[in-house]
Amino acid sequence: MTLIFTLVAIAEMAIAAPLLIRLAIGPTISDRIVAVNTLSTQAMLSVLFFAAAADRAIYLDVALWLASFSYLGTIVWARYLERELL
């Protein structure tokens, strides 16, 4: 069971790695925001499964904070794109 959880955590981070290519070559700023948003979601899933593998329920709060605050960051960046933040 622990092995399966650890493998899922490793696979999530390995899947998130090609997003950095889109982060590097993205033509506009919106592409980069999409890549960072997806990377944040994959990191949150990896933290969840590492918490289940290490058997510490205290790590799950970090995943909760990542999920809620990535949403806040995306909203702020969208507002910045519409030039309402200044």
Binding site: L23, A35, V36, A43, V62, L66
Partner: peptide, 11 residues
């Protein structure tokens, strides 16, 4: 944006 990705991965 790359700095934000660095913060996420560092978490």
């Amino acid at each position: 944006m790359a700095l934000s990705a660095l913060g996420t991965v560092l978490t």
